[in-house]
Amino acid sequence: MLEIRNLHATVGGKPILKGLDLKVDPGEVHAIMGPNGAGKSTLGNVIAGREGYEVTAGEVIYNGKDLLELEPEERACEGIFLAFQYPVEIPGVNNTYFLRAALNAQRKYRGEPELDSMQFLKLVRAKLEILHISDDLMHRAVNEGFSGGEKKRNEIFQMAVLEPRLAILDETDSGLDIDALRIVAEGVNRQRSEKRSIIVVTHYQRLLDYIVPDRVHVLADGKIAASGGAELALKLEEQGYTWLEQGGIQALDMEIRA
């Protein structure tokens, strides 16, 4: 599904990713954890194609294609979805109108017929319920005046409608209370399938209590420093990132290899 090899990326000339390797197979959920400034958000932005994130070395292969050659909208149409850490407020653009335009742009790209507003409403109604999103929210401008929880639920709702093959959830848990966290996690879990891969980027372990990953990676100083199963997240939670930075990686690696 996704294979990242020796990825180096700079932001404003400053090296952030320094030789990152990652392989995600179809149907897998991977968690990427790490301290602030390790490059977690940069990874999501590079995969989504944000301007200002310059790849200086390495490659990203997605379904056999060189992902870095594609425009952000082409990546989206190829099935990549980034749930933003800070979803952007777009005054004046109606949420329903926007999402239907996005879905239709993707359908058109894939050679599928576009949906009219009736067909679209039918499609989204069930998904709205799962994420506890009110009709009112759908008629408001995209993310404008939404609470933190509403914004994150709206991201996962968009994911449910767009049905990506690879979703990257960038700190989707930040700013959520425990109830909102449960709702969001439930929304994500319902979308786990053999064909869909998910990368959960998070600072804290707590989201992983609800979305249990197949693999956990520790990102430190622009590289994957350690990888393991779900238990690695617990170990990190217990020891903290400081311990990791002070040389704990070696020990951790040993344990995981063992």
Binding site: E73, R75, Q158
Partner: peptide, 12 residues
């Protein structure tokens, strides 16, 4: 905002 819309599949 432009980038946000593009990540959802809309052309530039």
């Amino acid at each position: 905002a432009v980038f946000y819309l593009r990540t959802r599949g809309l052309g530039d």
